[in-house]
Computed example of a mutant assay.
Amino acid sequence: MLIDTADIPGGGQLRLLQYGGNFSIEFGFEELMGSCDHVSEEALAKLTCERLSNRDGDVLIGGLGMGFTLGAALAAWSPRSSITVVELVPKILTWAKGPLAHIFRDHLADPRVIIEIDDVHDVIANSKDRFDAILLDVDNGPDGLIQLENERLYSGWGLRSAHTALRCGGILAIWSAYPAADFDRRLEAVGFVVETLEIPAFIGSNDDVHHIWFATKQTE
């Protein structure tokens, strides 16, 4: 059942659908986020925090989605942390406070959370030594499926901007539904130390996996 649609700035449309008790955000025939399978989205935050030297600091999340990465970040980072979520599509925030409010629970009211309706590319490009972690789940992977503009994030220039926006020892973590053979090299070319993990797409999955790149800015 179609619940609502959301126009994407610059073109395109997202659809919020309900299947029984489950919800799905879709772009065309692609599901970008579902309410029942979110293991890897939570791992994006949890595993990034585990790789940092402490649980304090400033975190940037690109893409609000259904809030699973945000919820995992709130659980992983300390009460002294700050978590900024940048969402391009205003209607996503409306859904979070409306038909998806039961999924978000009280996450948006947490005093650590700052919501910005903006392009995460611009926020990163205008930051220097600001974040301890940048978590990106703004598309289906390091390409511009939803918007060609998203490719700016994953180009050499965009990755250099992320490197600059991180503090020394900080981590850029990128979620993807598919492998990207040359992406490790792109990250390494701008100075990151790279680790790649395959995460089950859902509990019990052996063959269906998602991918996360953890790119660390070396300490000086």
Rank of each mutant, 00 (worst) to 15 (best):
D106M: 02
T48M: 04
T94S: 08
L64M: 05
V138Q: 02
D208M: 13
L93D: 07
P79Y: 00
R152T: 08
A109D: 10
L70Y: 03
P200M: 03
V120F: 01
P90E: 07
A165W: 01
T5G: 02
D7K: 15
R15S: 14
V85R: 02
T84N: 05
I171N: 05
R55A: 11
E195A: 09
R185L: 10
L145N: 13
S161M: 13
R160L: 15
P179G: 07
L17C: 08
V138Y: 10
T164D: 08
Q147W: 06
R167M: 05
E87V: 00
S82Q: 14
G57T: 00
L153F: 06
K217D: 02
E195W: 13
F131G: 09
D143C: 13
T164H: 07
I203K: 11
A101S: 09
N22H: 12
R130E: 10
R130M: 10
S205F: 08
L60T: 05
L136R: 01
A180R: 13
D4T: 11
W95M: 06
D143M: 11
R186E: 11
S82P: 13
G71N: 10
S24V: 14
L197W: 15
D208P: 12
L197I: 12
V190S: 14
P90W: 06
E198I: 11
H107Y: 11
S205A: 08
W213R: 00
D207G: 12
N206W: 15
E41K: 01
F23E: 01
L145T: 13
V209L: 14
D37V: 11
I203S: 15
G62D: 03
F68K: 01
D129P: 08
R105M: 08
L70V: 04
T48R: 01
G144A: 03
L74K: 03
T164C: 03
S24C: 09
P179S: 09
H38G: 08
L145F: 09
S24E: 15
A201L: 12
Q147Y: 07
E30V: 15
S53W: 15
Y19F: 14
H38K: 04
I117D: 04
P142R: 09
E26I: 05
D106V: 04
A76Q: 06
Y178F: 09
F29Q: 14
R185C: 09
T219F: 14
P200C: 05
S205I: 05
G67V: 04
M1L: 11
I134W: 02
G67R: 00
E41N: 00
A6H: 15
A177C: 13
L74T: 05
W213P: 00
V89I: 10
P111W: 03
V85G: 08
D143T: 14
E50M: 05
E151S: 06
G169C: 03
T69V: 04
L166V: 06
M33T: 04
N126W: 10
A6E: 13
L108P: 04
Q13S: 12
G63Q: 11
K97G: 12
S82C: 12
P111R: 01
Y19S: 15
P90A: 02
